[in-house]
């Protein structure tokens, strides 16, 4: 089975090398590809100098477009399984094998690495958790399913969903919306517990000022994803 780790990276020069090393050490069965989303720092230089497999976007597309490039790469290169993995050191590669096992055992279409099953490790800030709670309730209302960590950026999907995402993926803040999208299509989503770290370098893509916009946009997008059917 061919497995790919998709690592979207925008200005992650300080942590990208460590992230890739983590995958090489702790998930050796996985190939990886870094999507350099037209970083303005030395991310690309670090990748090239260290022989890191990198896809160079000539224009900054934002997180959705960058991750989608990874799914397109996975689809064209015949991968059976692909997993999103943050380039900033928040995710640990040791869970990747478990996630792949969970896909096979449950015959699942998507496996989400969730912080909120065992509630261990970095639990995000209070305001973030309020936002996540809102999404939990909304997903339950829209789909009847329980997803404990819909904003998790650590998600593994099978070939069906790789194809789907390579054709159609939200542009910004894609995680909760795409979860609703695939559950609505009758796909199976499973969660397994993971522990995430607080980011060590760089800044989050969601600043406090943007969070209101984020909540409104994602809420509407989720409702529309449900209506779209």
């Amino acid at each position: 089975m061919k497995k790919l780790v998709i690592i979207p990276a925008y200005n992650e020069q300080a942590s990208i090398k460590k992230t890739v090393q983590d995958i090489r050490d702790n998930a050796p069965e996985f190939d990886y590809v870094v999507i350099n989303d037209c970083s303005t720092d030395d991310t690309l230089k670090v990748c090239v100098e260290n022989g890191i497999n990198v896809l160079k976007l000539p224009i900054n597309l934002g997180i959705g477009g960058a991750v989608q490039s990874g799914y397109l790469y996975a689809y064209r290169n015949g991968y059976d399984v692909a997993v999103q993995f943050d380039g900033d050191g928040q995710h640990s590669a040791k869970y990747l094998e478990n996630m792949a096992a969970a896909i096979e055992e449950n015959d699942a279409d998507m496996v989400i690495g969730s912080r909120f099953i065992e509630n261990k490790g970095f639990q995000s800030s209070f305001m973030r958790r309020v936002g996540i709670k809102h999404f939990n309730v909304l997903i339950k209302m829209l789909t009847g399913k329980v997803v404990t960590d819909p904003t998790s950026g650590m998600r593994m999907v099978n070939r069906d969903i790789i194809k789907l995402f390579s054709e159609d993926y939200p542009k910004d803040y894609p995680e909760p919306e795409s979860v609703v999208q695939i559950i609505t299509m009758g796909k199976k989503v499973v969660e397994i517990p993971v522990i995430m770290n607080e980011r060590t370098e760089g800044v989050s893509s969601i600043s406090p000022l943007k969070s209101i916009y984020y909540m409104i946009k994602v809420t509407i997008a989720m409702v529309i994803a449900r209506i779209r059917g």
Binding site: L55, K56, L57, P58, I59, L61, G65, Q68, S69, L72, Y73, R76, K171
Partner: peptide, 14 residues
């Protein structure tokens, strides 16, 4: 369209 072109371009470049 720009997004699609950007992605195809990146894959070709690779």
């Amino acid at each position: 369209r720009v997004k699609k072109l950007t992605q195809e371009l990146a894959l070709l470049q690779k």
